[in-house]
């Protein structure tokens, strides 16, 4: 899942020096989107807005084409386009309107559950090499701030991560899970695990 947040005011002010057409994707619905803030911003910048298209699933270029067709007159007149959506939506509009400058209105942040239906408390990092067999089914890449594969660092205090004391140390969770299922022996495996980043780069 992705979270979108409005860009900072300075950057937005810079965009709105010229007349812009606005695409506002409330997108994957039921997913975090700064609807209210964007509404306020558009009202504040009213005089620089030449038209608005409120859409969902902007990432579907089939649909986006139809929104563009419907608003073509206003888009032609506009000196640029600002898109409030995740980075995927911005890229789709930029691809469909190559001769227009497209401004991203939001910054996109990555959040747990890349392909899950909703936000989960676990995450998959698409590393290409599932390590869950060594860790009782808790991902060391995502549940450890350092993505350590061979055991914890020494930084956990009260079983919490050194980076964020709110977060459980992934390796302590792994240890506790393995104890529960009587498979602590897995931890003692002498194989030293090393990441294979080529899998990510080549997508294999």
């Amino acid at each position: 899942m992705l979270i979108t947040k409005l860009k900072n005011q300075q950057e937005l002010d810079r965009y709105f020096e010229k007349e812009l057409f606005v695409f506002k994707c409330f997108g994957c619905k039921e997913v975090y989107f700064p609807e209210e803030e964007i509404g306020k911003l558009i009202i504040a910048k009213q005089s620089e807005v030449s038209g608005i298209a409120e859409v969902d699933y902007l990432c579907n270029d089939d649909f986006s084409k139809r929104y563009i067709e419907k608003n073509m007159n206003e888009i032609k007149k506009a000196r640029g386009i600002v898109v409030f959506s995740c980075g995927v939506g911005v890229q789709v509009i930029a691809k469909l309107l190559e001769d227009k400058t497209v401004f991203p209105g939001c910054d996109t942040h990555y959040l747990n559950g890349f392909q899950g239906l909703t936000v989960l408390d676990c995450d998959c990092n698409q590393c290409g090499e599932c390590y869950l067999n060594y860790t009782g089914g808790i991902c060391p890449i995502t549940s450890c701030s350092k993505s350590l594969l061979n055991g914890p660092c020494g930084g956990a205090k009260n079983k919490k991560c050194e980076v964020n004391p709110e977060m459980d140390c992934g390796w302590v969770l792994i240890y506790e899970r393995l104890k529960k299922i009587n498979k602590e022996s897995i931890l003692k495996d002498k194989n030293t695990l090393v990441r294979d980043f080529e899998k990510i780069i080549k997508g294999i």
Binding site: C59, V102, D107, T108, Y110
Partner: peptide
């Protein structure tokens, strides 16, 4: 790399500072 809901070729890494402009 997150690919949006629809199945297009564009991806977003959720880096938190959109450079697309």
């Amino acid at each position: 790399g997150y690919h949006g809901i629809a199945l297009g070729s564009e991806k977003c890494a959720g880096c938190g500072q959109c450079y697309l402009e």
